[in-house]
Design a protein around this nucleic acid. Structure first.
Ligand SMILES: [Zn+2]
Ligand SMILES: [Zn+2]
Ligand SMILES: [Zn+2]
Ligand SMILES: [Zn+2]
Lengths: 164, 164
DNA sequence: CGAATAATGATATATTGTAACCTTCGCCGA
DNA sequence: TCGGCGAAGGTTACAATATATCATTATTCG
């Protein structure tokens, strides 16, 4: 098996390799990941994932509800969107950006690690970083403090180079 | 001048020393810091800071509005609380915990650095960590990516040792 | 097929966050 | 002293985000 990306070790988990995906490729990967988790890849879920993946910046559940409603020609209530977004987050198909109350599609579903997001105050775009040393240090600090079931969130608000 | 704490250098800023404060001491430090920033230490602000500092876990603006209303025997609108919390955050008297939509008093006002919060999903208590190496690395990663005016947020959700 | 389970729809409500405009009060110069 | 000015807070209205509950439809599986 060819090694086509960076390597990750998280909290004693197995080794992963990393493959950033997009477009049709990403859709397929998301579907496979969700199904491997024993969940159904329904029309609604496919549309929501697609809308999220196409969106250039973190999207709120309400943004997504609007976009999906338009695409389906029929109103989809935010609570349905929330349900599916929650599922996506727990199955690693999407991430919640806490400082923006919004969600982004995970460009590497199936690859479990802590992501770092840089969010521009100006244009709202979120840049996705991966830095295993960094996230491992954060996890370790929390573990030393006696925490378990860790879910680190590392986000940096600021102004991106385009908007500067 | 005695050196009574850890040392910090952040983003080329001057050296600080660190002194965790509480009770009357913390109140005084907050007042001094706010006034040094050219802002008034009013009754309302004093009460809100006190309520926040006494609160054992991150408090929402609405929590604070209730507590302050009770203490003053007169309704204080969340609106007013938000205004003052925003001021506190910009002047470093308080921090916003993004993953909890809530605020904590800064135990070291006047001492500028990035804090790490560990928030327990169970009891809601936020443990405050400082780790300069870690936060410096986060800042550097964002800077390398071309971001400026950085405001890192490092939070870890999980379960604390008490609740485990 | 038919029961059990999963997914979504519909509606209501809770929680969090802003905007706009008004009143009060302290401060300062005419 | 008077009147203007600006900061702080009050009041009201509303927007944005999130959850709860129950009904309905779709899937799974024996
Ligand atoms: Zn990542
Ligand atoms: Zn930007
Ligand atoms: Zn700190
Ligand atoms: Zn706990």
């Amino acid at each position: 098996m060819p090694f086509d990306g960076k390597a990750f070790i998280i909290g004693g988990m197995a080794l992963h390799h990393h493959h950033e995906r997009g477009g049709e490729d990403l859709l397929k990967a998301a579907k496979a990941t969700l199904q491997k988790a024993g969940e159904q890849w329904t029309d609604m879920r496919a549309v929501i994932f697609d809308v999220l993946a196409e969106h250039s910046k973190p999207a709120s559940a309400y943004d997504i509800a609007d976009l999906v409603s338009r695409r389906r020609g029929k109103r989809v209530a935010p609570n349905s969107v929330y349900r599916i977004l929650d599922l996506f987050v727990t199955t690693n198909l999407a991430r919640r950006v806490e400082s923006a109350n919004a969600y982004v599609a995970n460009s590497h579903p199936g690859c479990l690690h802590d992501c770092i997001f840089l969010i521009c105050d100006e244009c709202g775009i979120a840049t996705h970083l991966d830095n295993d040393d960094l996230s491992a240090s954060v996890r370790e600090a929390a573990q030393v403090a006696g925490f378990v079931n860790l879910r680190p969130m590392i986000e940096v608000r600021g102004k991106c180079s385009n908007c500067d």
